[in-house]
C-alpha cells in the first residue's frame, strides 16, 4: 500500500513535496464539499414524491403459482436454509397428486433483510421479492406472514416454469418418462441390449 503510493509519486519522496501534495489533496477535498453547498439537493421527498422502483428491486416477498394455478413452492427448505437471518420457516408435507407442498410457510418480515438470497436459492421460482417496500405494521406480530398472506395468484417472473414438468418424480402433472427431456421408462426385466 505504502510502496504503491511512493511509486506513484516518485519525485515526491522529498518530504516537502509530500506535505505540499497532502495539503493540495486536503484542499481539493474541502473545495469539493464546499461546492456541494451550492448544488441543489438530490433528496426525493418520500412520501410526497414516490419513485417507481425497478422491477428487480427487492422488497416484500411473495409465493407465486405454477402456470396451472397450483402452489409452486415444493417446501424444499432451501430458502430457509440460505436465509442469513433465519426468518423463513416451513413444514413440508405430501400434497395432492404426489406433489410436495408446504403445510405451512412463514416469513417473519420483522427480521428479513431483503437480501434476496431466498429467491436466488429457490429451485422452482416460487419465492420472489417484489418492489413493494411499504410493508410496515404497528404490531410486530403482523409482520409475521403466513402462507396465505404470501401466496399471490400469478407466476411472477418465470411465469411459464413448472417444476414438476422437469423433475423426475411421478406426479399428476407428468408420469415417469413424461417429463421434459426424458425417455420412456425402461423394461428392467428385458435382457435385450
Amino acid at each position: 500500500m505504502s510502496s504503491d503510493r511512493t511509486k506513484k509519486t516518485k519525485p515526491a519522496d522529498h518530504p516537502g513535496t509530500l506535505i505540499a501534495e497532502s495539503i493540495k489533496a486536503l484542499g481539493s477535498g474541502f473545495a469539493t464539499t464546499a461546492k456541494h453547498l451550492l448544488r441543489r439537493p438530490v433528496t426525493e421527498q418520500y412520501p410526497e414524491q414516490k419513485r417507481v422502483l425497478p422491477e428487480r428491486s427487492r422488497a416484500r416477498i411473495v409465493l407465486t403459482r405454477d402456470p396451472d394455478g397450483r402452489e409452486r413452492c415444493v417446501a424444499c427448505y432451501l430458502c430457509s436454509a440460505v436465509c442469513p437471518v433465519s426468518c423463513i420457516s416451513m413444514q413440508s408435507t405430501g400434497g395432492e397428486g404426489g406433489r410436495r407442498v408446504a403445510a405451512w410457510f412463514r416469513i417473519n418480515f420483522s427480521r428479513c433483510i431483503y437480501c434476496g438470497l431466498c429467491e436466488e436459492a429457490c429451485p422452482t421460482s416460487a419465492i420472489q421479492l417484489t418492489p413493494d417496500f411499504e410493508n410496515c405494521r404497528q404490531d410486530i406480530l403482523e409482520m409475521v406472514f403466513e402462507k396465505d398472506d404470501l401466496l399471490v395468484d400469478h407466476g411472477g417472473r418465470d411465469d411459464r416454469y413448472c417444476f414438476y414438468r422437469h423433475a423426475g418424480i411421478a406426479t399428476d402433472t407428468a408420469g415417469k418418462g413424461e417429463h421434459v427431456n426424458e425417455q420412456p421408462p425402461v423394461d428392467a426385466k428385458s435382457n435385450l441390449p
Binding site: 424444499c76 429451485p123 423426475g168 418424480i169 417429463h179
Partner: peptide, 12 residues
C-alpha cells in the same frame, strides 16, 4: 440423474 433434489428427501 433426474432434476429432483428439491423434492428428494436425501437432499442435504
Amino acid at each position: 440423474h433426474p432434476h429432483d433434489c428439491p423434492v428428494c428427501d436425501e437432499g442435504g
